[in-house]
């Protein structure tokens, strides 16, 4: 059904209008129109089947029907990797439109933030074996000296986390010293 009318439609659209050059100019302009928005194609790409689109328009079409990626004009198979960007003469940047617009939602991922954890956990990194182990008081003492050296998990110098760790390590160092003194004098 669709095929019939489409061929009818294109037949009548390409039927010679007859006369003037004005008609011809219009047809030339139309050659460069995007088949989706019907405007002059921007960031133009052309499909393997030869159909012209704005990349943003084609991108949205492909996103709308992820399971059925066909050319909006002739229904041939189409995909992101099988379209060719077109670079006109006036276009100095020659940037592949597929790389800039629009950022593909599926491809985006944000890295987990480094210092987003609960601040109190900062000192778990070095101290988890230290509390309440009366038998190994000196283990506590030495473990505190792990701070400040450059273990890979340590926060970079100058950051708030680094400052915090330094502060905590000093406090803990004093607690450990008091603990040792208490062991000795008690």
């Amino acid at each position: 059904m669709a095929e019939t009318s489409e061929s009818q439609a294109s037949a009548s659209a390409s039927a010679p209008g007859g006369d003037a050059g004005g008609e011809d100019d219009k047809r030339d302009e139309r050659m460069l129109e995007c088949n989706i928005c019907l405007d002059t194609a921007r960031d133009a790409v052309v499909s393997m089947c030869g159909h012209l689109f704005c990349w943003p328009c084609l991108h949205q079409w492909l996103e709308t029907r992820p399971s059925r990626k066909v050319c909006p004009v002739c229904k041939a198979a189409i995909s992101r990797d099988k379209v060719i960007p077109l670079y006109g003469r006036g276009n100095t940047k020659q940037e592949d439109p597929r790389n800039k617009v629009p950022p593909r939602p599926a491809g985006q991922r944000t890295e987990p933030e480094n210092n987003s954890g609960f601040p109190g956990f900062g000192f778990g990194e070095g101290f988890h074996m230290s509390f309440g182990i009366g038998a190994f008081p000196f283990g506590v003492f030495t473990s505190t000296f792990n701070f400040g050296d450059s273990r890979p998990s340590a926060a970079p110098h100058g950051t708030a986390q680094y400052e915090e760790e330094q502060f905590l390590s000093k406090i803990f160092l004093w607690v450990a010293i008091l603990f040792v003194l208490w062991l000795i004098f008690a």
Binding site: E6, N35, V73
Partner: peptide, 14 residues
């Protein structure tokens, strides 16, 4: 079977 290049004109004809 909708395709973005179809128009109101082609739909009416269909």
């Amino acid at each position: 079977q909708w395709a973005a290049a179809l128009t109101l004109r082609t739909v009416l004809l269909s």
